Simulated assay, not measured.
Amino acid sequence: MGGSKNFHNGAGGTYDCIAIMSYYAVCRDVVSFRKIEEIEENLILPAFRRLRFVDINKPFWRKLMYRAFQNAEKQCAKWHDYEMHVAPYDKDKPIYYEFTACPAAEFAIKHGLTDIMPALCNVDFASMELLNARLVRKTTCSNGCKCDYSICGDRDDYLKEQPEYVDKAGFRRNT
C-alpha cells in the first residue's frame, strides 16, 4: 500500500499503520490489542531480524545508523510526510532524533483511534533491541507534541538513568 510515494518504513509505511487502524476500527470488539501489535510486528520486524549482526555498541555500526537517520530525515523532507529532525552526532551521547509530525498519529487522533497507537509505536523498541541497541523515549506524537528517540547500545551506561516502564495507555516509555 502506498507505493513508492511514501517513505516511512519503506513503501507503504504510513499506509500500513492507517490500514491497521482501519481494521481495528471495524473489528475492535473482536480483536485484541496484542493481535494488532502482532500485525505491526510482522510488518516491521522482519527487516530488523535480517540485521541481527549489527551491534550499535560498536562505533562503526553506531555511525552507520546515524547516517541512516540522516538519510531518513532527507527523505521525510522530500516526501513531506513526517517532520523529522536529527541532532548532530556526538560519539559520547545517544543518537537523538525526533518527529514533530506523524501522519499515522494525526490519523489516529482525527478518528479517535489513539487507544491503539501503543501497538504501533512500541515496535520501535523491539526493532532497536534486534540491533543490540535500546530506544529511550519519553513521548510520542499521539500522546505529546513529538516522538523522541534516543538510541544507544544495549550496554550503554545512559540506560541506567532511563528506566523503562509501560504507561496506563500501554506505551513503552522511559522516565
Rank of each mutant, 00 (worst) to 15 (best):
F69H: 10
A25G: 06
E41C: 13
I116G: 02
R134T: 02
F33Q: 12
G144L: 02
N71A: 11
P94I: 05
Y66I: 11
C145E: 14
A68W: 08
F125H: 11
A72K: 04
A126I: 04
C27P: 00
H85T: 15
T14S: 05
M128H: 11
S22W: 00
Y66E: 08
Y89C: 09
D156P: 03
K110Y: 04
L64Y: 10
K35N: 12
Q75S: 13
E41K: 14
L51Y: 04
N71R: 09
P103E: 03
A72M: 12
L51V: 00
I56W: 02
C27L: 13
E164F: 03
Y165G: 07
Q70V: 11
K138V: 07
N143G: 03
F125E: 02
A19E: 09
S22T: 14
N9M: 09
Y89G: 06
T114Q: 10
A104Q: 01
I151S: 03
V31F: 07
M84G: 01
Q162H: 15
R67D: 07
V86T: 13
C17T: 02
R52T: 09
H85C: 07
T100Y: 07
I109F: 03
D167S: 07
K63N: 12
P118K: 03
K93P: 04
Q70F: 01
I36N: 05
K5F: 07
H111M: 07
F125L: 05
I56K: 02
G2E: 04
R49I: 03
L120G: 02
C145S: 15
C145F: 08
V30F: 14
I20F: 13
K146P: 00
C17D: 13
A25S: 15
Y23R: 11
E73K: 15
A108H: 06
I20W: 04
L130M: 14
M117H: 01
W79E: 08
S150N: 13
Y15I: 00
Y96D: 03
E98L: 09
W61M: 09
G170P: 06
I18M: 11
L120Q: 06
M1S: 14
F107S: 00
T114I: 13
E38T: 15
A133S: 10
P94K: 08
A19D: 11
H80P: 00
Y82I: 11
D148R: 06
N42E: 12
A108P: 05
N71G: 07
L159V: 08
D55N: 15
Y149K: 06
E37Y: 08
E129L: 03
M128E: 03
Q70E: 15
F99P: 01
A11Y: 10
Y89H: 10
F53R: 06
V123Q: 02
D154N: 15
D148S: 10
V26P: 00
E98V: 04
F33Y: 15
F171C: 06
A72L: 02
E40N: 14
N9C: 04
A77K: 13
R137N: 13
C152H: 06
S32T: 15
M1H: 12
Q162T: 09
T139A: 12
K93T: 10
P46L: 10
G12D: 09
L51P: 00
